[in-house]
Amino acid sequence: MDRSFARRRLLTTAAVLGGAAVLGGTAGGTAQAAGEPGPAQFPLPHGFQPEGIAIGTTPFAYFGSLANGDIYRASLATGRGRVISKGLGAGHPTVGLKTDPRGRLFLAGGVSGELRTVDVRSGETEKVYAVGGRFVNDVIVTPRSAWFTDSYQAQLYRLALGEHGEPGAVTPLPLTGDWEQGPDFTANGIELTPDASALLVVNTVAGGGGLMRVDPRTGVARAVDLGSSRLPYGDGLLLLGRTLYAVQQQLNQIDVFRLNASGTKGTAIARITDPRFRIPTTVAAWGDRLYLPNARFDVEPTPDTEYDVVAVDQV
Protein backbone atom coordinates (compact mmCIF):
# COMPACT_ATOMS: atom_id res chain seq x y z
CA MET A 1 0.00 0.00 0.00
CA ASP A 2 1.15 3.55 -0.69
CA ARG A 3 3.23 4.74 2.27
CA SER A 4 1.44 8.07 2.60
CA PHE A 5 -1.89 6.27 2.81
CA ALA A 6 -0.58 3.80 5.37
CA ARG A 7 0.73 6.60 7.61
CA ARG A 8 -2.57 8.47 7.66
CA ARG A 9 -4.76 6.82 9.97
CA LEU A 10 -6.27 9.65 13.79
CA LEU A 11 -12.40 9.40 20.00
CA THR A 12 -14.77 9.47 22.18
CA THR A 13 -16.22 12.88 22.29
CA ALA A 14 -16.59 15.90 24.49
CA ALA A 15 -17.64 19.47 23.95
CA VAL A 16 -16.68 22.72 22.28
CA LEU A 17 -19.20 25.43 23.01
CA GLY A 18 -18.91 27.05 19.60
CA GLY A 19 -15.93 27.87 17.44
CA ALA A 20 -15.06 31.03 19.33
CA ALA A 21 -15.97 29.81 22.80
CA VAL A 22 -14.80 27.54 25.58
CA LEU A 23 -15.06 23.76 25.28
CA GLY A 24 -16.88 21.53 27.73
CA GLY A 25 -19.10 18.47 28.25
CA THR A 26 -19.10 15.00 26.74
CA ALA A 27 -21.02 13.30 23.98
CA GLY A 28 -20.78 9.61 24.64
CA GLY A 29 -18.31 6.77 24.22
CA THR A 30 -17.40 6.45 27.90
CA ALA A 31 -20.66 5.12 29.30
CA GLN A 32 -20.42 2.07 31.54
CA ALA A 33 -21.67 -1.22 30.24
CA ALA A 34 -24.23 -3.20 32.20
CA GLY A 35 -23.89 -6.94 32.79
CA GLU A 36 -21.17 -9.25 31.55
CA PRO A 37 -18.76 -8.05 28.86
CA GLY A 38 -19.16 -9.39 25.35
CA PRO A 39 -16.51 -11.03 23.16
CA ALA A 40 -12.99 -9.66 23.31
CA GLN A 41 -12.58 -10.17 19.56
CA PHE A 42 -15.13 -10.33 16.76
CA PRO A 43 -15.09 -10.22 12.96
CA LEU A 44 -16.02 -7.50 10.51
CA PRO A 45 -17.19 -8.30 6.98
CA HIS A 46 -14.53 -9.59 4.60
CA GLY A 47 -13.14 -6.79 2.45
CA PHE A 48 -14.66 -4.09 4.66
CA GLN A 49 -11.41 -2.10 5.19
CA PRO A 50 -12.22 -0.53 8.59
CA GLU A 51 -10.56 2.59 9.91
CA GLY A 52 -12.72 4.53 12.36
CA ILE A 53 -14.81 3.43 15.33
CA ALA A 54 -17.49 5.22 17.34
CA ILE A 55 -19.40 4.10 20.43
CA GLY A 56 -22.24 6.17 21.82
CA THR A 57 -24.48 5.71 24.84
CA THR A 58 -25.57 2.14 24.04
CA PRO A 59 -23.40 -0.99 23.64
CA PHE A 60 -23.04 -0.79 19.88
CA ALA A 61 -19.96 0.13 17.88
CA TYR A 62 -20.01 1.80 14.47
CA PHE A 63 -17.28 1.27 11.89
CA GLY A 64 -16.60 3.07 8.62
CA SER A 65 -15.32 1.46 5.42
CA LEU A 66 -12.41 2.86 3.44
CA ALA A 67 -13.57 0.82 0.46
CA ASN A 68 -16.94 2.46 -0.19
CA GLY A 69 -18.02 4.47 2.87
CA ASP A 70 -20.43 1.86 4.29
CA ILE A 71 -21.28 1.98 8.00
CA TYR A 72 -21.33 -1.29 9.95
CA ARG A 73 -22.92 -1.54 13.40
CA ALA A 74 -21.91 -4.35 15.78
CA SER A 75 -23.34 -5.34 19.14
CA LEU A 76 -20.66 -5.31 21.84
CA ALA A 77 -22.68 -7.95 23.70
CA THR A 78 -22.58 -10.52 20.89
CA GLY A 79 -20.10 -9.26 18.28
CA ARG A 80 -22.73 -9.68 15.58
CA GLY A 81 -23.69 -6.82 13.28
CA ARG A 82 -24.71 -5.62 9.86
CA VAL A 83 -24.27 -2.75 7.42
CA ILE A 84 -26.79 -0.09 8.43
CA SER A 85 -25.86 2.59 5.90
CA LYS A 86 -24.61 2.25 2.35
CA GLY A 87 -21.79 4.57 1.44
CA LEU A 88 -21.48 6.71 -1.66
CA GLY A 89 -19.18 4.21 -3.34
CA ALA A 90 -15.53 4.03 -4.34
CA GLY A 91 -13.75 7.34 -3.90
CA HIS A 92 -16.01 8.25 -0.96
CA PRO A 93 -14.50 6.43 2.02
CA THR A 94 -15.48 6.79 5.64
CA VAL A 95 -12.37 7.41 7.69
CA GLY A 96 -12.98 8.85 11.18
CA LEU A 97 -16.52 8.89 12.53
CA LYS A 98 -18.36 9.89 15.70
CA THR A 99 -21.92 9.67 16.95
CA ASP A 100 -23.97 12.15 18.95
CA PRO A 101 -26.69 11.43 21.54
CA ARG A 102 -29.41 12.27 18.99
CA GLY A 103 -28.66 9.34 16.69
CA ARG A 104 -26.56 11.10 14.08
CA LEU A 105 -23.18 10.00 12.75
CA PHE A 106 -20.56 12.49 11.58
CA LEU A 107 -18.20 11.08 8.95
CA ALA A 108 -14.81 12.22 7.67
CA GLY A 109 -14.65 11.48 3.95
CA GLY A 110 -10.91 11.10 3.36
CA VAL A 111 -9.84 11.64 -0.26
CA SER A 112 -13.37 12.70 -1.27
CA GLY A 113 -12.81 16.00 0.57
CA GLU A 114 -16.23 15.60 2.15
CA LEU A 115 -17.88 15.84 5.53
CA ARG A 116 -21.05 13.75 5.81
CA THR A 117 -23.83 13.14 8.31
CA VAL A 118 -25.91 9.97 8.53
CA ASP A 119 -29.13 9.22 10.42
CA VAL A 120 -28.39 6.11 12.48
CA ARG A 121 -32.04 5.03 12.62
CA SER A 122 -32.75 5.13 8.89
CA GLY A 123 -29.21 4.76 7.57
CA GLU A 124 -29.84 7.65 5.20
CA THR A 125 -27.11 10.13 4.34
CA GLU A 126 -28.49 13.48 5.52
CA LYS A 127 -25.95 15.99 4.29
CA VAL A 128 -22.76 16.01 2.26
CA TYR A 129 -20.41 18.98 2.55
CA ALA A 130 -17.79 19.23 -0.19
CA VAL A 131 -15.21 21.28 1.70
CA GLY A 132 -12.36 20.76 -0.76
CA GLY A 133 -10.22 18.94 1.78
CA ARG A 134 -7.36 16.82 0.48
CA PHE A 135 -7.85 14.12 3.12
CA VAL A 136 -10.54 14.73 5.72
CA ASN A 137 -9.31 12.43 8.42
CA ASP A 138 -10.93 12.40 11.85
CA VAL A 139 -13.72 14.12 13.76
CA ILE A 140 -14.86 14.98 17.25
CA VAL A 141 -18.45 15.98 18.00
CA THR A 142 -19.40 18.49 20.69
CA PRO A 143 -22.72 20.13 21.60
CA ARG A 144 -22.18 23.10 19.28
CA SER A 145 -19.57 21.91 16.78
CA ALA A 146 -18.09 18.98 14.94
CA TRP A 147 -14.38 19.43 14.28
CA PHE A 148 -12.59 17.64 11.43
CA THR A 149 -8.89 17.30 10.65
CA ASP A 150 -7.29 17.46 7.21
CA SER A 151 -4.11 15.42 6.87
CA TYR A 152 -2.67 17.32 3.90
CA GLN A 153 -3.65 20.88 4.76
CA ALA A 154 -2.86 22.97 7.83
CA GLN A 155 -6.46 23.57 8.80
CA LEU A 156 -9.41 22.15 10.67
CA TYR A 157 -13.05 22.30 9.59
CA ARG A 158 -15.75 23.38 12.01
CA LEU A 159 -19.28 22.18 11.29
CA ALA A 160 -21.61 24.33 13.35
CA LEU A 161 -24.42 22.56 15.22
CA GLY A 162 -27.70 24.15 16.17
CA GLU A 163 -29.55 24.08 19.48
CA HIS A 164 -30.88 20.60 18.75
CA GLY A 165 -27.70 19.32 17.13
CA GLU A 166 -28.75 20.06 13.56
CA PRO A 167 -25.79 20.59 11.20
CA GLY A 168 -25.27 24.11 9.88
CA ALA A 169 -22.46 25.84 8.02
CA VAL A 170 -18.83 24.72 7.68
CA THR A 171 -15.93 27.10 8.22
CA PRO A 172 -12.20 26.33 7.93
CA LEU A 173 -9.81 27.14 10.78
CA PRO A 174 -6.20 27.67 9.58
CA LEU A 175 -3.56 26.26 11.92
CA THR A 176 -0.68 28.53 12.92
CA GLY A 177 1.78 28.86 15.80
CA ASP A 178 3.87 25.72 16.30
CA TRP A 179 1.99 23.77 13.64
CA GLU A 180 4.37 22.12 11.18
CA GLN A 181 2.83 20.81 7.96
CA GLY A 182 4.81 18.03 6.32
CA PRO A 183 4.74 16.78 2.71
CA ASP A 184 3.11 13.53 3.88
CA PHE A 185 0.13 12.88 6.16
CA THR A 186 0.44 15.30 9.08
CA ALA A 187 -2.75 15.86 11.09
CA ASN A 188 -4.52 12.77 12.33
CA GLY A 189 -6.67 12.15 15.44
CA ILE A 190 -8.46 14.85 17.40
CA GLU A 191 -9.64 15.13 21.01
CA LEU A 192 -10.23 17.71 23.73
CA THR A 193 -8.05 18.81 26.62
CA PRO A 194 -9.22 17.53 30.04
CA ASP A 195 -10.55 20.97 30.97
CA ALA A 196 -12.23 21.18 27.54
CA SER A 197 -10.62 24.53 26.79
CA ALA A 198 -8.83 23.49 23.59
CA LEU A 199 -8.43 20.78 20.96
CA LEU A 200 -5.68 18.16 20.86
CA VAL A 201 -4.53 17.13 17.39
CA VAL A 202 -1.93 14.53 16.42
CA ASN A 203 0.87 15.96 14.30
CA THR A 204 3.00 13.11 12.93
CA VAL A 205 5.75 15.47 11.71
CA ALA A 206 6.59 18.14 14.28
CA GLY A 207 9.31 17.09 16.71
CA GLY A 208 9.31 13.57 15.34
CA GLY A 209 5.58 13.20 15.96
CA GLY A 210 3.46 14.41 18.84
CA LEU A 211 0.44 16.40 19.94
CA MET A 212 -0.60 19.96 19.30
CA ARG A 213 -2.92 21.94 21.55
CA VAL A 214 -5.09 24.11 19.28
CA ASP A 215 -7.06 27.17 20.35
CA PRO A 216 -10.50 26.69 18.71
CA ARG A 217 -11.00 30.44 18.40
CA THR A 218 -7.75 31.36 16.68
CA GLY A 219 -6.19 28.16 15.32
CA VAL A 220 -2.94 28.87 17.14
CA ALA A 221 -1.24 25.55 17.90
CA ARG A 222 1.26 24.87 20.66
CA ALA A 223 3.22 21.66 21.07
CA VAL A 224 2.17 19.53 24.04
CA ASP A 225 5.10 18.55 26.25
CA LEU A 226 5.20 14.74 26.19
CA GLY A 227 8.73 14.47 27.53
CA SER A 228 10.76 12.04 25.44
CA SER A 229 7.68 10.31 24.00
CA ARG A 230 6.98 10.59 20.28
CA LEU A 231 3.95 9.73 18.13
CA PRO A 232 5.33 9.26 14.59
CA TYR A 233 2.47 6.86 13.81
CA GLY A 234 -0.11 8.52 16.02
CA ASP A 235 -3.67 7.86 14.92
CA GLY A 236 -6.83 7.64 17.02
CA LEU A 237 -7.05 9.54 20.30
CA LEU A 238 -9.30 8.80 23.27
CA LEU A 239 -9.52 10.91 26.42
CA LEU A 240 -11.01 9.37 29.57
CA GLY A 241 -10.73 11.85 32.43
CA ARG A 242 -7.09 12.92 32.26
CA THR A 243 -5.93 9.68 30.67
CA LEU A 244 -5.17 9.99 26.98
CA TYR A 245 -4.90 6.87 24.81
CA ALA A 246 -2.97 7.40 21.57
CA VAL A 247 -2.99 4.59 19.00
CA GLN A 248 0.30 4.13 17.15
CA GLN A 249 -1.02 2.06 14.30
CA GLN A 250 2.03 0.63 12.53
CA LEU A 251 3.76 0.05 15.87
CA ASN A 252 0.81 -2.07 17.06
CA GLN A 253 0.61 -0.26 20.37
CA ILE A 254 -1.37 2.26 22.39
CA ASP A 255 0.66 4.85 24.28
CA VAL A 256 -1.04 6.10 27.43
CA PHE A 257 -0.46 9.52 28.95
CA ARG A 258 -1.62 11.37 32.05
CA LEU A 259 -2.40 14.96 31.04
CA ASN A 260 -2.59 18.08 33.11
CA ALA A 261 -5.95 19.84 33.12
CA SER A 262 -5.16 22.30 30.36
CA GLY A 263 -3.56 19.69 28.12
CA THR A 264 -0.22 21.45 27.84
CA LYS A 265 1.77 18.55 29.31
CA GLY A 266 1.49 14.77 29.32
CA THR A 267 3.40 12.08 31.20
CA ALA A 268 3.73 8.61 29.72
CA ILE A 269 2.26 6.09 32.18
CA ALA A 270 1.78 2.89 30.18
CA ARG A 271 1.98 1.17 26.81
CA ILE A 272 -0.60 -1.38 25.70
CA THR A 273 0.42 -4.09 23.25
CA ASP A 274 -1.41 -7.25 22.24
CA PRO A 275 -0.53 -10.10 19.85
CA ARG A 276 -3.97 -9.67 18.27
CA PHE A 277 -3.13 -6.15 17.06
CA ARG A 278 -2.81 -6.03 13.27
CA ILE A 279 -2.29 -2.31 12.73
CA PRO A 280 -5.17 -0.94 14.81
CA THR A 281 -6.07 2.60 13.90
CA THR A 282 -8.65 4.10 16.23
CA VAL A 283 -10.06 3.42 19.68
CA ALA A 284 -13.32 3.82 21.58
CA ALA A 285 -14.41 2.79 25.07
CA TRP A 286 -17.25 0.86 26.62
CA GLY A 287 -17.26 -0.24 30.25
CA ASP A 288 -13.71 -1.09 31.28
CA ARG A 289 -12.63 -1.97 27.77
CA LEU A 290 -11.06 -0.32 24.78
CA TYR A 291 -12.17 -1.45 21.31
CA LEU A 292 -9.96 -1.14 18.23
CA PRO A 293 -10.50 -2.13 14.59
CA ASN A 294 -7.55 -3.82 12.91
CA ALA A 295 -7.00 -1.96 9.62
CA ARG A 296 -4.30 -4.35 8.34
CA PHE A 297 -2.53 -1.68 6.28
CA ASP A 298 0.35 -4.12 5.78
CA VAL A 299 -1.63 -6.22 3.30
CA GLU A 300 -3.15 -5.36 -0.06
CA PRO A 301 -6.93 -5.29 0.50
CA THR A 302 -9.11 -7.66 -1.49
CA PRO A 303 -12.81 -8.57 -1.25
CA ASP A 304 -11.75 -11.62 0.76
CA THR A 305 -9.40 -9.91 3.22
CA GLU A 306 -10.40 -10.68 6.82
CA TYR A 307 -10.85 -7.87 9.32
CA ASP A 308 -11.71 -7.88 12.99
CA VAL A 309 -12.07 -5.85 16.19
CA VAL A 310 -10.18 -6.51 19.42
CA ALA A 311 -10.89 -5.40 22.97
CA VAL A 312 -8.29 -4.76 25.66
CA ASP A 313 -8.55 -3.55 29.22
CA GLN A 314 -8.23 0.13 30.03
CA VAL A 315 -5.26 1.25 32.12
Rank of each mutant, 00 (worst) to 15 (best):
R230A: 06
T125S: 14
A61H: 00
L211W: 04
P183W: 00
V202A: 05
R73G: 00
V299E: 15
N294I: 01
A20K: 11
S197H: 07
S145G: 01
T281E: 07
L88D: 15
T149S: 14
N203W: 00
G266F: 00
R276I: 01
A90L: 14
K265N: 07
F63V: 02
G81D: 13
K98Q: 13
E51Y: 00
S228C: 09
L11Q: 09
G113K: 09
V131I: 10
P275K: 13
D138G: 03
R296H: 00
F106H: 12
G168S: 12
A61V: 03
I279A: 11
Q249L: 10
G35C: 09
A223Y: 01
S65C: 05
A34F: 02
L244S: 10
K98Y: 00
S228G: 12
P50A: 02
R296F: 03
G25I: 03
R80T: 07
G18S: 14
R104W: 04
R222V: 02
Y129G: 05
K86R: 15
R102T: 10
P43A: 04
V309I: 13
D100I: 03
I190H: 05
M212G: 10
G91K: 09
A31R: 15
P167E: 12
T243F: 05
V247E: 14
Y157P: 08
G19S: 09
G133W: 09
A268W: 07
H46F: 03
V312H: 07
F42R: 12
I190M: 09
G113S: 05
N137L: 12
E166D: 10
I254H: 12
S122P: 12
A33Q: 14
L156W: 01
L115M: 14
Y307E: 12
L251D: 14
R158G: 10
T171I: 08
T171V: 11
A20P: 03
Y129T: 02
T204E: 07
A270D: 15
R102K: 13
S122K: 10
F185A: 15
D119T: 08
D298I: 01
D150K: 00
R134F: 00
G168C: 07
S122C: 08
T186S: 07
T94G: 09
N68V: 05
V283M: 10
L23G: 15
G133C: 13
V312Q: 14
R217L: 12
R222A: 08
L251Y: 11
G38M: 12
T281M: 12
Y233R: 15
Y152E: 08
S151F: 06
Y307G: 09
